[in-house]
Amino acid sequence: MTRVFVFTNHKGGVGKSTSATNTALGIAGMLRRAGAPNARVLLIDTDSQAHATLVTTGTKEYGTDDSLYTVLMADRQNAAQTLLNCIVQSTWDADLHVLPASPMLEGAERELMGIAGAPYRLADPLSRILNRYAAIVIDTCPSFSLMTEMGLIAATDAIVPVEPRYLETVGLMSVIGKINDIREGWRQPNLRVSGILVTKMNTRIRGHNHLLDELKAHSVLGKLLLGVVPANEAVSYAHQNHQSIFNYDPKASASKAYAQFVGKLVQRIAKGGV
């Protein structure tokens, strides 16, 4: 079964889009390096701000008939085909495909609110094209909106990017609790919290180190820690240039950290297990 990684945290600016885009590219690149017959990765942008779409495709001019919005509005019979039609190739890599977001997604939440089956409008068509991809990566907006819910329902693995300054276990537990609610409430036994990714880590700040140590020591959260990405200017520059961190500066500390993180995900993809 193709893994669907969703990057989610209701806190804004913690590095969801940065992580989702670079991870998607990293998985494709690494699978190709490993000689996988299928190295295609699909990045789905569910955030109406369309940051992930912009950096990976060079534009966010997507709307009524060529974005995730189109898929959500399609009738059930045609939704999967519509999804296929809306996918574009990333300017980053031929194996990275993108289902773009659109500002219309904000309206979609209202349009779909209360419609039976609305939360499945991404999961359902996605399940029908899933096996064409080696992995799927979903970026979400910083709130538990209907869109985020759709992303979670479509996913198998939730990954929580978090900045050290928000690392208090209480806050993290509430994100995890929320994901668990989705799992129970929508009967998505396949969905689980499979990792925490610490972003913007600055080892010179004592508080950061302290919180990270606490996380590592935590009985549950400690096991979930999948990576620590240092605060690194290269990340913002790459973002501004609409480039991946790997291409912008492969030697940057953040590049190495993301490569390690992606390696762990690829291992899971390859093993098909935990």
């Binding site: 990293g26 291409n247 590049s255 190495k256 490569a259 390690q260 690829v266």
Partner: peptide, 12 residues
């Protein structure tokens, strides 16, 4: 693609 290949390759 080649630029990131070395990095990803070593991890792989």
């Amino acid at each position: 693609t080649h630029r990131i290949d070395d990095l990803l390759g070593s991890v792989t």
